[in-house]
Every structure is written in structure tokens, then in C-alpha cells.
């Protein structure tokens, strides 16, 4: 089923919000890091993995989710967090290491947790799989509604933990969907170099569950496939696997020179940027006017500006608070 007009507006809004957010983070990230680049400096220290280009996956899937559904994300979580409804102000503050951040600065950008919308991360490849499967088990055992979605990258399928969790979800017939964001690169190692099969949806056969691959980073096709998989999970018919071809328009991390990319690959990807493509399609399909989309873009930019302002103006985390919240209060 195609996304409704309302769905499309929501998807476009969240894609643009995510992109504006990453652009803002990218700019601020380099504050204090020049002339000599030192990752520890500036208002946003540490590694930074941006999701530019991968927005269609997040919105196509999360369009079908409510706050009660569970999502686990990766080291590259911003687009998924935004689409899942994580508090943008608190997320920005967390990335800045501020007291007002989601965890008061204890987690950082690779550890975005928002209990209000059941969003959690792991910075370790494939390790969000187990917790998502466990949340799905919890819902099934308690007879409570809600499904669990684990987002992983294409490199994660070669982790043992990915296979273990897929099998567990299938053997227990859990309301779980694994969504693979195939951006073709595990840092510098290509999918072709690292994976024995080109289409990871084929791996679904190993678990006796449906598997589908979506080409072209297409938010409409992702929305449709995710809708089927999530409806199947909600109906109690078990897990599904979806792989989406997506584009990593940023480096693996901020500062990545990407010398491993074939010449011209990046330029070709920018020409396929999903945001202008969706904008053109919505207008072409009569699903939105130029003015409506301009307004969505302006609102997204304002929302991001407000979040960044909130983060910048918030107090730094108190150093001694590092010693708290190790155990449950």
C-alpha cells in the first residue's frame, strides 16, 4: 500500500529534519577542531557518524510505528531516533554532553536512549539485535501490543550475534522485524568484499521467514515493504527481514577522507539524493505543493535550530555526576 498524503508529508518532514540536524551537527563538529583536527576538541567531541542519505529507511519504517513499539539502533542512530520520535532537544543536548541530555551526558551520540518512545542503541555492530528480539518476546509473553524493530547495517549480518538473534526470533515466532540499511560500506570495506551473498534478504530463507530487498533508496517502496512486515508482526505471524539499498552520503565518521571509494561514486550518490527526489515526486504526484514543502522545510529547520540552541545553552554535565546512575535508583 502506498503511503497516504499524510504519511508522505510526515516522511518528508522527518527526512528533512534529520538532514538539517546532521548538517548542523557537521558544522558544529568542526568548531574547535581546526587548524589541527583533534577529535577530543570542540563542543561535540568524540566520533561522529552521520546518516545523510539514509533517511528513507528510517522514515519508511517508523511511519508504521507508535511510541509503544520498540526500536534498537546502531552507532549511526540520528535519523532513526528522529523518525521514532526521540526528543530532539534532549538528543542534541546529549550529543553536546550536556546535563539536559537524554542521559545527562553519560551516553553520547552512539548511545541514544529514550525510554519515552522505547528507543535504544548499541554502538557495537549487530548487538542491538538481541535486545530487540527480547522486547518482542516480552510483548508476546505479556500479551501486550507492540512490535520491535532492529536497524542494522549490511556489515552486521556477518556477526554471529545477528544470526543467533534472527534464529531466536524465528524459532519463537516473535513480533520482530530486522531492517538492514545497506549503504554498501562497512567503514572502508565494501559489501562485495565482505559478504558471500549480494542480497541479504536471501538470508531470510535460513530462518524460514519472509525476506525482501528494496533497491534505489526509495522511501515509497520501503514504506510498503515495512508496512507488510510490521503488519505481519502485529498479527502474530512472526518476524521478517528487509534489506534496503541506501546511500551513505557522509563518511563513515566525521573526518573520514573516504579514499577507499571508487572515483565518482560519491558524486553519483549525491545526484540520487533521496530528499530532492521525494520532493519532486510529491509535487509530480500532486501530493504536495511547492509552498507546502517549503513550509515543511522551514519548520524542520526551525525545529533543528531550536534543538541546537537548547543544547548550546544548556549547562554542561556536572563532572561528578559521572559517578551516578550506574545502578538502578
Amino acid at each position: 500500500m502506498s503511503p497516504t498524503r499524510e504519511d508522505q508529508h510526515w516522511m518528508y518532514c522527518n527526512m528533512v529534519t534529520s538532514r538539517r540536524f546532521e548538517e548542523a551537527i557537521a558544522k558544529i563538529y568542526f568548531e574547535g577542531k581546526s587548524p589541527a583536527f583533534n577529535m577530543a576538541n570542540g563542543p561535540i567531541p568524540g566520533e561522529m557518524h552521520l546518516s545523510d542519505g539514509q533517511e528513507p529507511v528510517a522514515v519508511g519504517v517508523c511511519a508504521h510505528l507508535t511510541p509503544e513499539d520498540v526500536v534498537t539502533a546502531t552507532h549511526r542512530p540520528h535519523h532513526q531516533a528522529i523518525a521514532k520520535g526521540v526528543d530532539l532537544d534532549k538528543m542534541a543536548a546529549e550529543i553536546f554532553g550536556k546535563a539536559t541530555g537524554l542521559s545527562g551526558g553519560r551516553g553520547g551520540h552512539m548511545h541514544i536512549f529514550d525510554a519515552d518512545v522505547n528507543f535504544a542503541c548499541s554502538g557495537i555492530i549487530a548487538q542491538g539485535m538481541g535486545p530487540a528480539v527480547g522486547a518482542a518476546l516480552s510483548r508476546k509473553m505479556q500479551g501486550k501490543s507492540g512490535v520491535a524493530v532492529a536497524f542494522v547495517g549490511e556489515g552486521a549480518v556477518n556477526q554471529g550475534g545477528w544470526h543467533e538473534a534472527m534464529n531466536l526470533a524465528a524459532v519463537w515466532n516473535l513480533p520482530f522485524v530486522c531492517v538492514i540499511e545497506d549503504n554498501a560500506w562497512g567503514i572502508s570495506v565494501s559489501k562485495e568484499t565482505s559478504s558471500a551473498v549480494a542480497n541479504n534478504a536471501d538470508r531470510a530463507a535460513a530462518y524460514g521467514i519472509p525476506g525482501k530487498r528494496i533497491e534505489g533508496n526509495d522511501p515509497y517502496a520501503i514504506h510498503e515493504a515495512a508496512g507488510e512486515a510490521i503488519a505481519r508482526a502485529r498479527a502474530g505471524n512472526g518476524p521478517s527481514l528487509i534489506e534496503v539499498e541506501t546511500y551513505r552520503l557522509a563518511g563513515h565518521f566525521m573526518g573520514d577522507a573516504e579514499g577507499y571509494r571508487p572515483e565518482g561514486e560519491k558524486d553519483a550518490l549525491f545526484e540520487k539524493d533521496p530528499i530532492p527526489k521525494m520532493r519532486a515526486r510529491m509535487i509530480g504526484d500532486g501530493m504536495a505543493s511547492e509552498e507546502e514543502l517549503d513550509r515543511i522545510e522551514a519548520e524542520a529547520a526551525a525545529r533543528v535550530d531550536a534543538a541546537i540552541k537548547f543544547a548550546r545553552e544548556s549547562d554542561d554535565a556536572a563532572p561528578e555526576d559521572a559517578l551516578t546512575r550506574v545502578f538502578a535508583a
Binding site: 525510554a115 535504544a120 535486545p131 528480539v133 538473534a165
Partner: peptide
């Protein structure tokens, strides 16, 4: 599948079990 079921326990615990 210790990785899967211990990881699943974490997810179930966070979900109220």
C-alpha cells in the same frame, strides 16, 4: 545462542520483564 538470549533478556528486562 548465548549472545541472542542474553541480549534478549536485556531487551525483555528493559521492557518490564
Amino acid at each position: 545462542s548465548e549472545t541472542a538470549f542474553i541480549g534478549a533478556a536485556v531487551g525483555a528486562a528493559q521492557d518490564g520483564m
